[in-house]
Amino acid sequence: MGDPIERLQNSRLDAEGDEVAALVGQSSVWRDAWRYLRTNPLFLIGLAIMLVIIAMALLPALFARGIDPTDCDLSLSRQTPSAAHWFGMDLQGCDYYANVIHGARNSVMIGLISVIGVLIIGVLVGALAGYFGGWADSLLARITDVFFGIPLFLGALILLTVTATRSVWTVSLALIVFGWMTAMRLVRSSVVSIRENDYVLAAQALGASSGRILFRHILPNAVAPVFVYATIAVGTFISAEAALTYLGIGLQAPEISWGLQINVAQSLIGSSPHLLFFPALFLSVTVLGFILLGDALRDALDPKRR
């Protein structure tokens, strides 16, 4: 091996370093995803909808122009929209705009609580089943299959008819108990595939404990698909709450929710269609917002789909 080659090898070594140094800044999967999302109009629309709805849930009085949703005058019952009352009046003669705005809080809360609960159960059970495999996997997968056998609405219907009071928490609980299985399956399958990676073996060879391997090495790499699912699921759970309330087993008056409003409006659809239209519009737009976000996130995290 002559001198020039030695020199060339060294120069190539430097070149290798330079080439990497030339990369602008740091990037990671999430950062790359953000760069893509920033320019995606569907994501921006979804984000805008989500922010407005969450703001509405946090500060309803601000959006309701200071009108109290419980300040009612029966003589104004079912008035059509006007300049003073944008969405008209409801059956009790309350300002409907203020009521629809105040309905956001319960809907959004149920959506978020349900998704958080579903994530906790789904990620935990899925991670344990995927990581330990063997009989633990068989047992947990069979339990999941049993829950899969019960339709979400049937299960929630039964659970909610036997509970004494029905609040945001009980409705969320019903949705969690019968809705965590998809998240579990997603986590389980991605944990199984990530467990095969050499870096998991490497961590094991370094003497890392099972807990450390699972929580520090596997889960951070496995959660992306569940994250996407969860975003879409917020929308699904919000509409599920409306559907349960519509069936008469969700929230109860004097709570305010879009589902309750739709429930009352259904019998009045002939004479006062605006009572159905406004809560249904808000509900659909909210669900659409979360689904747009989830879709955009899925594309962003999976470069092959872009």
Binding site: Y199, A202, G207, S209, N221
Partner: peptide, 26 residues
Amino acid sequence: SQRGLRGPRAKVGVVFQDPGSSLNPR
């Protein structure tokens, strides 16, 4: 056991075949 192996493993280093997959990407 895996737990008992943690100590002795400090005495061994392992270099894997595929450097791409043997490092945690995150």
